[in-house]
């Protein structure tokens, strides 16, 4: 049974965009068999090896089962741009892209991200060039204390991918999972609308 219970490289539903190589590399081998002693304090629980791609870079990390993707990004990989706000999926500060979809990194077990592709705020700018959303947030004054900003921008990026020309109301609903205490959201909504325009222009530019 231990063999079956292992997270097998090809047993997942996660087909789609993943490359086979990445998934094989991240097969989540655990160090001991399934049948083992009762749970131990976290510090002594056996670690799993996982592999994940973050912002295009491959990482192999050893994690205990109770560690979240957020823990790994911040504490193991030093990617502190992803913020811890509530650890309960209620504030959106830890929003990242996991295989192309936004998730609260605090609600994803690190083991569960094995073999995945993750994009964090550090991976949004390309070769030093800010993403149109980053630029719009800066220019429109959508940032005050800034703690919500990385999660906001990543959620907005997913929103615009799904709906390149959202109305204000659609932006507001799409951003409802990201709390901001400083701005009252007005400038955030405006910045996302502006970035949508810019990105449409860029696509047109590329198409012509």
């Amino acid at each position: 049974m231990s063999g079956e219970a292992r997270r097998s490289a090809d047993g997942g539903r996660r087909t789609g965009r993943k490359t086979g190589a990445a998934r094989r590399a991240g097969s989540g081998r655990r160090p001991s068999t399934v049948d083992r002693r009762p749970p131990t304090p976290a510090d002594r629980a056996p670690a799993w090896q996982i592999t994940l791609s973050v912002n295009g870079d491959p990482y192999r990390v050893s994690v205990r089962p109770n560690r979240t993707l957020l823990d790994v990004l911040r504490e193991e990989l030093g990617l502190t741009g992803t913020k811890r706000g509530c650890d309960q999926g209620e504030c959106g500060a830890c929003t990242v892209h996991l295989d192309g979809r936004t998730v609260n990194a605090c609600l994803v077990l690190a083991i569960d991200a094995d073999g995945s592709e993750v994009t964090t705020i550090e991976g949004l700018a390309r070769r030093g060039e800010l993403h149109p959303l980053q630029r719009a947030f800066v220019e429109e004054g959508a940032i005050q204390c800034g703690y919500c900003t990385p999660g906001m921008i990543l959620q907005a990026a997913a929103l615009l991918r799904q709906n390149p020309s959202p109305t204000s109301a659609q932006i507001r609903t799409g951003m409802a999972g990201n709390l901001c205490r400083c701005t009252g959201y007005a400038k955030i909504v405006k910045a996302i609308g502006k970035a949508a325009e810019v990105m449409k222009g860029q696509r047109k530019g590329r198409a012509s």
Binding site: G81, I121, E122, L130, Q134, V138, I143, G146, T149
Partner: peptide, 8 residues
């Protein structure tokens, strides 16, 4: 500080 905050 907006640039630093927008890039993490």
């Amino acid at each position: 500080d907006a640039w630093d905050k927008a890039t993490g």
